[in-house]
C-alpha cells in the first residue's frame, strides 16, 4: 500500500492520520511506502518545535517509521523545490522522486491512500 501524505503538519488532522495509517500498517507487517507530496513535505522540515501547540509530536513520531517497518520513504522533488527545501537537509531521510518516478510509484502498489 502507498500512503500519500500531502498536508502540512499542523494544519489539521490529515498529516497525523496518514502517519498513523503508516505506523499501524507497518506494525502489522504490511508492505508499504509513504510519499510526502505538496505541503506534506513540510512535515519533514528540520527544527520544528511544536510543543506549544500541545499536539502529539509528529516530527518525533516520523522518526519511528523505520522501526515500524516503513523503510520506503519518498518525497516529491518538485514539492520540495518550490518550498525551498533540499532533500539532504530533512529531519527524516526521504528519497526525492521526480514526477515520472511518482507516476510509476502510484502504479506499483495495489492500494493508494491520499490524505
Amino acid at each position: 500500500m502507498l500512503i500519500v501524505s500531502r498536508q502540512a503538519p499542523w494544519a489539521g488532522p490529515a498529516a497525523r492520520e496518514a502517519l498513523d495509517i503508516a505506523l499501524a500498517g507497518g506494525a502489522f507487517g504490511l508492505p508499504l511506502a509513504i510519499l510526502f507530496l505538496d505541503d506534506g513535505v513540510f512535515q519533514l522540515q528540520q527544527g520544528q518545535a511544536p510543543a506549544a501547540l500541545e499536539q502529539k509530536n509528529l516530527c518525533a513520531n516520523l522518526q519511528a517509521l523505520d522501526l515500524f517497518g516503513v523503510e520506503a520513504v519518498y518525497a516529491c522533488q518538485h514539492s520540495l523545490h518550490v518550498r525551498g527545501l533540499a532533500a539532504g537537509t530533512l529531519a527524516v531521510e526521504a528519497q526525492p522522486l521526480a514526477a515520472e518516478a511518482i507516476t510509476a510509484l502510484f502504479n506499483r502498489f495495489d492500494e493508494v491512500i491520499t490524505l
Binding site: 505506523l23 499501524a24 507497518g26 506494525a27 507487517g29 502529539k56 509530536n57 518525533a60 513520531n61 522518526q63 519511528a64 522501526l67 515500524f68 517497518g69
Partner: peptide, 15 residues
C-alpha cells in the same frame, strides 16, 4: 523520549 510514542510489538523487538 526519542519518538514520543509507545512502540507496537515489532518496533519494540527491533529497538
Amino acid at each position: 523520549r526519542e519518538f514520543q510514542l509507545s512502540p507496537a510489538t515489532r518496533p519494540l523487538v527491533k529497538y
